[in-house]
Design a protein around this nucleic acid. Structure first.
Lengths: 265, 265
DNA sequence: AAGTGGTCTAGACCACCGT
DNA sequence: CGGTGGTCTAGACCACTTG
């Protein structure tokens, strides 16, 4: 690779050399890398230079640093799959009900962590544009979705403040169903039940972003961690857009699967 | 946020304070932050501490650092959209033909950058598992897909070596069509034309990862940048899996859109 | 207690960019 | 040229984990 030519910083060359040795199997998944002082001695550089090299490998998700313990080669992540049938007209792609990994026994529900009426921030203005309204008319509701023991996703919903029932404005989100029905507490289910307004998908989109300071704190991941973003607009049956949603999902631990066949997979 | 309590490192508290001032509009999008020496004086810390704080904001995609010039508040990214109709039985979700943003005038094509028969690396073994074969039987073909002036995605295809025509093994990928037909040079089109084997989607999945050292270099993004991953298996009509593909797409500059209605958007 | 990684300082030199 | 950010050193102290 081009990063080998001299002229590249020393810490980058060290990072590539370590990555090579990982790829070559000298440090297999789970193995501990030499400690920082050891690497300092081997490469004859200052500890901060070694730390920059190792930090590069960590950002590349090649190693995992455990404070007080050591630096370890990452095993490939075990990912939860969320299966979806794209042939059905009404997709539930990414809905909270389906966000439970197959075989999970818990009963997760969405929980509201913030309600902000009149959100005129950057994303509030984006939402306003999608909905054809003023940002001041919209309320942003922020929720967390647990999967297993931790929160797997943070969602921001923008809805016209006038449509919102008082319970949602107060940040209350009653469990929508029982474990028997498989229905989890869900903001949109609560919205529909309280208002009678049924929402249909207009569009949904996938992209990827780096976790910002707020999302990193909410999800318990490092700043800059890759997040899978699913955003979109839903509306009334007559086509009037009502909702803009932007969900950020821990990226490397979860994936959305679209199945095109019935058999294996 | 919890990051305000003392006990958090100084560089993190500084990062949050700067982020607050950005959010408050003191530094609007495009504005230059104070220089590192100025921030050192203001917060009365060493320059390295300031650099850590600013690096945190950069990883959070809040600022953009231009060497020799200054540090600037990021404008929200302008994203290319790739529209798809999820109601069609045969989705072309993410195919190269559709990866051209609407209105683009160029004629992009996939180009092969590496061919490795018998790939027994980590992903090679994953591919082997999906295809029900031995990793040694598979060949990995690595391609880049340009959109506009830069490469937007890197793809890895694993196919049984025995099925591959010589041209692909040699790394040659003829343009599949003309600008008039809208067909771009495409590995799978070339494969089907050379072998007569028609491939159908089995499944496709979306997730997000941090760019590793190799992908970062290929795509020209910093290590750790968020990449949208679209992976999946295709096979013969009788269901026999033939292909595992794993495509990494520059995450924050591009998105896949699924449309559920015909009208507005 | 010993070893690990995390934070911070003080100072130096360099590469890049605009004027 | 002056100012900006990028790299690197030497040394210090701290927080965390394991035995």
């Amino acid at each position: 690779m081009a990063s080998y030519r001299s002229g590249t910083p020393r810490y980058l060359r060290i990072a590539w050399r370590l990555q090579e040795r990982i790829d070559a199997g000298e440090f297999p998944p789970g193995a501990r890398l030499p400690s920082e002082p050891e690497l300092c001695a081997e490469f004859e550089v200052n500890r901060l230079t070694i730390r920059q090299a190792v930090a590069e490998l960590e950002r590349a998700a090649a190693v995992e640093i455990r404070r007080g313990v050591g630096t370890f080669v990452r095993r490939p992540p075990i990912r939860l799959s969320v299966a979806v049938d794209p042939r059905r007209q009404q997709l539930d792609l990414g809905s909270v009900q389906h966000a439970r990994p197959v075989g999970s026994t818990d009963h997760p529900g969405e929980r509201i962590v913030a309600v902000q009426p009149g959100d005129t921030g950057l994303w509030g203005r984006e939402a306003a544009q999608h909905l054809g309204r003023e940002a001041a008319e919209l309320t942003r509701i922020e929720t967390l979705i647990p999967v297993g023991a931790t929160d797997a996703a943070v969602s921001s919903y923008w809805l016209p403040t006038g449509l919102l029932p008082n319970e949602l404005l107060a940040g209350e989100l009653p469990a929508a169903g029982t474990a028997a029905t498989g229905e989890a507490g869900n903001l949109l289910v609560a919205f529909t039940r309280a208002t009678g307004i049924r929402l249909e998908y207009d569009w949904r989109a996938f992209s990827a972003v780096a976790a910002d300071l707020v999302d990193a704190e909410l999800l318990g991941v490092p700043v800059g961690a890759p997040l899978l973003v699913r955003e979109g607009v839903s509306g009334r049956a007559d086509g009037e857009p009502v909702l803009y949603v932007r969900r950020r999902i821990k990226g490397d631990a979860m994936r959305f699967v679209l199945r095109y066949r019935d058999h294996n997979g």
